[in-house]
């Protein structure tokens, strides 16, 4: 089970560098036959950039009311949790679109029965067919990397 998490998206604009943070993600892993299926989900509206206007605009532009959840699915071998680095193929559903990212690297640190996993998903706006929002006629950059920090525990 996902015990706690911090997901942070980063948006670059010529006048701004913004980050939105969510700690509302939930996740679960189910293992069978040496493979584990993971699902991590987070409400779009839970991301907080410290600016309510920007957050509402983010929900609008990502169609967050129509598609309120971001989900990430992956399948890993059970043995992966013993490694210091895991490379995962991710399927991300967001804004009504599905994007797949191959071999995304995550660091794994084991502390007791907890696994601390961190990495960055190289998401872009075009992956999800999102029109780049603009401020003063200047659009944001296409790259919106999402930093993931999770703590998993056995149930």
């Amino acid at each position: 089970m996902l015990k706690q998490s911090t997901l942070t998206y980063h948006v670059s604009h010529p006048l701004h560098q913004s980050e939105g943070v969510s700690r509302a993600a939930r996740g679960k892993g189910v293992c069978h036959d040496g493979q584990c299926d993971f699902l991590i989900a987070v409400p779009v509206k839970s991301f907080d950039s410290g600016d309510s206007n920007r957050d509402l605009h983010m929900i609008q532009v990502t169609r967050g009311a129509e598609f309120p959840m971001v989900t990430v699915r992956t399948r890993l071998p059970e043995s992966a949790s013993a490694s210091a680095t895991v490379k995962a193929d991710l399927e991300v559903q967001f804004a009504g679109q599905t994007a797949r990212y191959q071999q995304v690297a995550f660091e794994v640190v084991t502390q007791g029965d907890e696994k601390k996993i961190s990495g960055t998903i190289p998401t872009t706006l075009t992956d999800f067919k999102i029109d780049p929002p603009s401020l003063l006629a200047l659009p944001v950059k296409n790259e919106i990397p999402v930093r993931v920090e999770m703590t998993w525990t056995s149930q």
Binding site: M1, K28, G29, V30, C31, H32, D33, C36, F38, E78, S81, K115, W152, T153, S154, Q155
Partner: peptide
């Protein structure tokens, strides 16, 4: 198993 399996696939 490290990730809390449920008793089905």
């Amino acid at each position: 198993l490290p990730n809390a399996p449920t008793p089905n696939k």
